[in-house]
């Protein structure tokens, strides 16, 4: 299995063996991510970071990952101050930037942008989110968090919140299907997981249960993965408040959960998780965002050929 020059576009192009190898590599690099040791693994390499949409965690964790491995980061900066504002196509921008870098991280507002970029690039493209499409590095860090803080084998997980539009949960479901997880989907009927994804999971012999009650879902799961519920999905603000309140994770709710339950969230959160949960042993979301660094270090080192 070789990762050198591999484009990372969608989870669907990764087998379980490939995912395991990436997670193993991330675990080896974790001491470097937390400054416990130093590395020059990517010295002399340049990572181009092109974000056409705002981002905090994804962008900064990619930049940190590259710097922790001794590499340099080249940033597109503001789209308004670039040739893109003059009407340059993404294809042309990629053809130019590939000449300046050893890999390109791309976030774009249009679905399929990373796939298109990969067709015009001789260096690896890493998809950091393409519209409502894919965000595979988020899924890798979610899997890594589950593996480090809970367990991937025999996992029972509840996914709660906006399961209709949330791209992170779609990719995560696909990846969890490779590990045979038991999945409970918790959402109001307006934000249910698309039927084709549920059918796809069932066709992989995954146990899937759908409910709108978080109390019911929480009792026997190992991980509760919450996602942001966006106000703009609801025409009626009162309905939004009702749904958001019904899915809010509080210390009182967590009293019904197993002691080892971990609460995850891709962040930013609004009011899905009561801040009082932060101080409980269940809270895992800030660690989750840190784990983005070793996971992205692993991906960068593998696609740039610095590690096998």
């Amino acid at each position: 299995m070789t990762f050198k020059d591999l484009h990372i576009i969608s989870m669907k192009s990764f087998s379980r063996d490939m995912i395991d190898h990436i997670l193993d590599t991330a675990e080896k690099l974790e001491p470097i991510a937390s400054s416990k040791s130093k590395s020059d693994l990517l010295k002399g390499k340049v990572l181009a970071v092109m974000f056409f949409e705002p981002s905090t965690r994804t962008r900064m964790s990619f930049e940190t990952a590259m710097m922790r491995l001794g590499g340099d980061v080249l940033s597109l900066g503001s789209v308004d101050a670039s040739s893109i504002a003059k009407g340059e196509t993404l294809a042309d921008t990629i053809r130019v930037v590939q000449g300046y870098s050893n890999a390109i991280v791309l976030r774009h507002n249009k679905e399929g942008a990373a796939q298109l970029a990969s067709e015009f690039s001789s260096v690896p493209i890493i998809n950091a989110g393409d519209g409502a499409g894919h965000h595979p590095t988020q899924t890798f860090l979610d899997l890594y968090t589950i593996r480090r803080e809970s367990h991937l084998e025999g996992l029972k997980i509840a996914l709660a919140g906006d399961l209709k539009y949330g791209r992170t949960v779609h990719s995560l479901c696909y990846a969890l299907s490779l590990y045979g997880a038991e999945i409970t989907l918790v959402s109001p009927k307006e934000l249910r997981m698309p039927a084709e994804i549920v059918d796809d999971l069932k066709s992989h012999n995954i146990k899937v249960r759908e409910t709108d009650s978080i109390e019911e879902a929480i009792t026997d799961v190992d991980v509760l993965y919450a996602t942001r519920i966006q106000k703009e999905r609801f025409p009626d603000p009162a309905e939004y408040r009702k749904v958001a309140n019904s899915l809010q994770i509080t210390p009182e709710l967590l009293e019904k959960a197993k002691p080892e339950l971990k609460v995850m969230h891709p962040l930013p959160r609004t009011n899905e998780i009561d801040p009082r949960v932060d101080d409980t042993p269940h809270a895992c979301y800030f660690k989750q965002s840190f784990y983005g660094v070793p996971v992205r270090m692993a991906l960068l080192a593998l696609v740039m050929g610095a590690l096998e």
Binding site: T89, L90, A91, H108, K110, E111, G112, Q115, D130
Partner: peptide, 9 residues
């Protein structure tokens, strides 16, 4: 919102 529907070659 597909990239194939934009001004790309």
């Amino acid at each position: 919102n597909c990239i194939s529907n934009s001004n790309e070659p």
